[in-house]
Design a protein around this nucleic acid. Structure first.
Lengths: 217, 217
DNA sequence: AGTAAAAATGAACATCATTTAATAAAACAT
DNA sequence: ATGTTTTATTAAATGATGTTCATTTTTACT
């Protein structure tokens, strides 16, 4: 096969992905370059283009792997919780823990839009849906959540978690930043779910409290 | 003054900012380059570096202006609402409307971390705090929100909105994407506030419902 | 008019992603 | 074993980027 016969095409592919991930984790996304990846695996830059169409493809592959790892992490996080509400907290905690542990790779998923005519984010849609599903299952198991609202509730909760991560992760190289993120997450989930469990019959109650007003349709 | 005596230093600065903003709005952030900005205002690239230290500084200036415009937009959005809860919906609506109308510039605020030793996001802290304050005022006016939780509730709500925007805006060049964002926003705010109004005395109630579990401290 | 300061330029440098012609090694055929 | 084709790999070339700097041009002042 290869000139040195040392590595097959898929081996080089794998080495390149791992080298690139190491660069990103260590020095951030801006430090990534084709030449750096190539020399890290002992090849020249041209060989990278023999394996990947371009850098965007390599980045997309890394993002795919990251999403897979995230999914595995969330499955793991779900392993020691029973009640659906506990599971939802676990999903939030697992997501923020992952984002805090891999801030650069986590940011890359959302911030790198390929400039090709490739359908930008659509590529991850399947992997994203798989993540959504984890939340959807828990919400369906939650009597407090009316069936027809599960779809939007899933998106609302994930969006909330995404926002918490976006506002806290990777800004400072702090240790406390994850704790703050976790606190925000639990607060948001807690109150949202409480509201979800009451809003079906509390519009009158709230008005009697004198302040709450229905959300404009 | 200037060679052609036509523009003062601050005039060139202003022209450059506007030209750069036009490029970003029209072609996206990746299309921005020093040479393109320079030629758009009828100067050469060197002159840009006479006014800005580097491109990062120009980007930071644009981000500052964007945050100012966003603040003005939110003040405007607050003008026709009375009850604090209405105002919170208005803040969400205003934020998403702005993000949908200026997706590239909105994304730039959060996605462009300068690689200088400049304290990345800290520069916007003041302008950010001003935005937070708008929410804080409404939450304080909301009897449903206990005083000591206003701080975290403010961050939770803004994070939620940020997440909604992040998950919806700029992905597709669609018209409906803002409507979906608005729907998600209203849903999230509505249920969160409902929960905020009840969670102070409902932990027992929820347990009696048989599903809800207190948020782990 | 002559000089110093300021403003503006354009060329140069280093780096980047990407392409391509040339080369080396392996696989296969005869 | 030898010649041919296929594949893997390289090094150089291209064009664009941010940034710097010596040089030129214009203005302001003496």
């Amino acid at each position: 096969m290869g000139r040195r016969g040392e590595h097959s095409k898929s081996e080089i592919e794998c080495m390149a992905l791992e080298a690139a991930e190491a660069i990103i984790e260590g020095e951030g996304f801006d430090a990534l370059s084709a030449r750096k990846v190539a020399s890290a695996i002992g090849y020249t830059v041209g060989s990278l283009y023999f394996v990947f169409r371009n850098l965007d493809e390599l980045i997309q592959r890394i993002n795919g792997r990251t999403l897979d790892q995230l999914y595995a992490g969330l499955i793991e996080a779900l392993s020691d919780c029973r009640h659906p509400q506990q599971c939802i907290y676990a999903l939030g905690g697992g997501y923020l823990a992952f984002a805090a542990r891999h801030p650069h790779r986590w940011r890359m998923i959302f911030e790198q839009q390929p400039r090709d005519d490739n359908l930008s984010i659509e590529i991850y849609q399947e992997k994203m849906d798989r993540l959504y599903e984890l939340m959807e299952i828990q919400l369906k198991a939650l009597a407090a959540c009316p069936e027809e609202e599960v779809f939007i509730a899933t998106r609302a909760l994930w969006s909330g978690l995404q926002g918490v991560a976006s506002m806290t992760i990777g800004r400072k190289p702090d240790r406390e930043e994850e704790q703050w993120a976790q606190k925000l997450s639990r607060h948001l989930i807690g109150h949202y779910l409480a509201g979800l469990g009451t809003t079906q019959f509390n519009s009158r109650v709230n008005q009697s409290v004198g302040r709450l007003i229905d959300c404009p349709k």
